[in-house]
Amino acid sequence: TVKFKYKGEEKQVDISKIKKVWRVGKMISFTYDEGGGKTGRGAVSEKDAPKELLQ
């Protein structure tokens, strides 16, 4: 599970739902399947990112 803040809201998403991951400076950005055909997005700092996300 990845915990992150998006627009001031605390969120979390299961690693299995993450589609795409990329690095922006010291942040790790990602998109994930929100269900219902929607794609969500989020970002975590490199130090807070789970190891599975960095692979």
Rank of each mutant, 00 (worst) to 15 (best):
F4C: 03
T1S: 13
R23S: 04
V44I: 15
E46F: 14
Q12K: 09
R41F: 15
G8H: 04
A43K: 12
K7S: 05
Q12M: 12
S45Y: 14
G25F: 04
R23F: 09
T1H: 10
A43M: 15
R23V: 08
V44D: 00
Q12C: 14
G35Y: 04
D14Q: 11
I28V: 07
S29N: 15
F4Y: 05
Y32C: 01
G37H: 04
Q55N: 13
K3E: 05
E9I: 14
S16K: 12
E52T: 08
Q55Y: 11
S45F: 14
K20I: 08
E9F: 08
K38W: 05
D33G: 03
G36T: 07
E34P: 03
T31M: 11
G40V: 06
A49E: 01
K19D: 08
K3L: 09
G35I: 05
E10R: 06
Y32N: 00
V24S: 13
G37K: 04
K20S: 11
F30D: 00
T31N: 04
K19C: 12
V44H: 01
S16H: 08
K26C: 13
I15A: 04
G42Y: 05
D14W: 06
P50G: 04
G36F: 11
V44Y: 02
P50E: 02
K7I: 03
K26W: 07
K7H: 13
G40I: 05
K3V: 12
W22H: 06
E34S: 08
E10T: 10
F30I: 02
V13Q: 01
K11I: 13
K11M: 12
G36R: 06
M27F: 13
E34L: 14
L54A: 06
K17A: 12
E10W: 15
K5G: 05
K5C: 15
V13T: 06
V21G: 02
A49N: 01
K47G: 09
V2G: 01
K51M: 14
V2A: 02
A49C: 12
R41S: 07
D14Y: 08
R41N: 07
L53M: 08
K47R: 13
M27A: 05
G8P: 00
G37F: 04
G35K: 06
K17D: 10
D48A: 10
V24D: 13
T1C: 11
M27P: 00
G8N: 07
V2R: 01
K5A: 07
K19R: 13
W22E: 04
Y6D: 10
F30K: 00
K38S: 09
Q55T: 12
Y6E: 08
G8S: 05
